[in-house]
Nucleic acid binder design. Structure first.
Lengths: 227, 227
DNA sequence: CGCTTAATTGATCAGGGTCAATCGTGGTGG
DNA sequence: CCACCACGATTGACCCTGATCAATTAAGCG
C-alpha cells in the first residue's frame, strides 16, 4: 500500500501529457534536454544533509534510498526510489536528508535552474514537476501511515506487497536492499524483520529461496495481514 | 522539528514572489481570485476518503487534521494544518485521506480547474503551488522521521516544540487538539501521551495550567530530549 | 447539581528491542 | 580445490517500553 500503490494515474484536474511514473522514460520527455547522466556504485552518496537543493534526480536504473541519520547514529530510511522515480525535492536551500545508492545505479540529474527556465516556456514541464512532487508526497504520507499504528508483521507484509509492484512477476521479488535497510525503512530492528520473514515462511505465505529473493506463495494471506 | 520547523523559507532555485507559509494571506496573493471561503464546525468533515481531488484548501483560521482510518477502526493523523497552510493535494483522482476540522475553522477552497487556468497565464502561480506541495512533502517526511525510530517521550517533546512554532509566545502553547488527536498523530496511546506530559511536568520541563495550555519552562531540556 | 466526556493514574501484560550465539554464503588465498 | 574468513542473516533468551485494562479525577454543560 504505502502510497506507491495508490499512485499510478495522473490527477484529473491537472492533465499531464505524457506523464508516467515508475516506467521507462516516456517517448516525449520534456525534461530530457535538461539532464545529465551520472552513475553511482553501491553505497555511494548521491547527496548529503546540508548540500544545496539545486538539483533533483530521476532514477534510470538501480535503487536509491533517501534517509536521515539521527544524532544517536540510528538511521531512518524515508523512501526507496526505483527506475522512473524522480526524487530530491526539498523546500529550503539546504537538504535535510541524504540519498545513497542501494546498489549500482544510474541517475539523470536536473539542475533546477535549467528546469525552471524550461518551465517558463513550457507549461507541461510545470505540470510534470508538480506531479512528481505529488508522487513523493503520497509516498511519504503512505510511509507515515505504515509507521504509525502497525505491528511488526503488518509492516513487513505491507513492505513485501509494496515492493512486489516493482517486480516483473508479482509473485517473485528480488530485494535490492539488505535486511538492515528494510528494518530502517520500517522502524524495526533487523532481528524483527528476520523473524517476521521466517514466520511468514513457516506459515506458508512466502518462500525464501535465497537471501535476496522472496516468493509470494499466498498473497491473499499477506494482504489480509497488511490490513 | 517534524518538517514544519525546517520549512519556513522559499527554496532558492524556485523563486516564489510573495511566497509565505503559515502567515496571514500575503498582500498580493495571486490565488485570491480563484478561491471561495467556507466555514466548518468542530469535527466537521472537510473531505473524505474517496472524494474527488478537484479542490484544495488554504487554512484561514483554526486547525485541520488530515487523517486515515484503518480497517480495525484505528485512526492515524497524518498532519495538522494551521492558518496559512495549504493542503489537500493528492495524486490520483480520488482521495486516500480525509480532513476534518479540529475546532471551528475557516478555509479557502480552490478548484484545481480554475487554478490550473490561472497557472497557464501566470508562472508565479505554478511556482506557488509547487512550493505548497513541497511544504506538504517536507512535513510528511518529517512526520515519518518522527514516527520511525523514536521513543514516546521523544515524540511528545518533539510535538510540543513543533507546535510551539504556531504560538505567538513560544513559551506558551495552546493545544487546539485533544490528547487523542496527539496520540493518533504520534502513533501512541492517549495514556502514554498523558503520562509523558505528566512526567515532563514532574521534571520541571513544562507546566500544565489547564488542559489545553502548556507552558514550556525548560525548552532546552525538551530540545535535548527530542534529539 | 448531576451527567457526560476527556484526562490522569495505576497495575499488568505483551510486542518488539537488546544481547549473544550460530548459521550460511561468498570471497580470498594457501 | 578446499579451508578459512568476514559479513549478513537467523535464532534464542531475556528485558523493557509502551499497550491494555481498569479505576479515578477533572471539566464542561444542560
Amino acid at each position: 500500500m504505502t502510497a506507491q500503490a495508490a499512485v499510478r494515474q495522473a490527477p484529473s484536474g491537472f492533465p499531464l501529457p505524457g506523464f508516467s511514473v515508475a516506467c521507462h522514460t516516456p517517448p516525449q520527455e520534456p525534461l530530457q534536454t535538461a539532464g545529465t547522466v551520472a552513475h553511482f556504485g553501491e553505497g555511494a552518496a548521491i547527496f548529503a544533509e546540508g548540500d544545496a537543493t539545486d538539483v533533483f534526480y530521476r532514477v534510470v536504473s538501480g535503487v536509491v534510498r533517501v534517509c536521515k541519520f539521527l544524532s544517536d547514529g540510528r538511521r531512518q530510511i524515508e523512501a526507496f526510489h526505483v527506475a522512473g522515480d524522480v526524487f530530491g525535492f526539498e523546500p529550503g536551500a539546504e537538504r535535510t536528508l541524504c540519498a545513497e545508492a542501494v546498489g549500482p545505479c544510474s541517475l539523470v540529474a536536473y539542475r533546477r535552474r535549467n528546469v525552471d527556465a524550461l518551465a517558463q516556456k513550457d507549461q507541461a514541464v510545470s505540470r510534470l514537476l508538480f506531479g512528481y512532487v505529488m508522487q513523493n508526497l503520497a509516498q511519504a504520507q503512505g510511509h507515515s501511515l505504515l509507521l504509525g499504528r502497525r505491528g511488526a508483521a503488518e509492516k513487513v507484509a505491507a513492505f513485501l506487497l509494496d515492493w512486489s509492484r516493482h517486480s516483473a512477476d508479482p509473485r517473485i521479488l528480488h530485494l535490492a536492499m539488505t535486511r538492515q535497510d528494510i528494518a530502517d525503512y520500517l522502524g524495526l530492528t533487523i532481528e524483527t524483520v528476520s523473524r517476521s520473514l521466517s514466520q511468514f515462511e513457516r506459515d506458508g505465505m512466502i518462500a525464501l529461496p535465497n537471501i535476496r529473493e522472496v516468493r509470494l506463495t499466498n498473497r491473499t494471506a499477506l494482504e489480509s495481514l497488511a490490513a
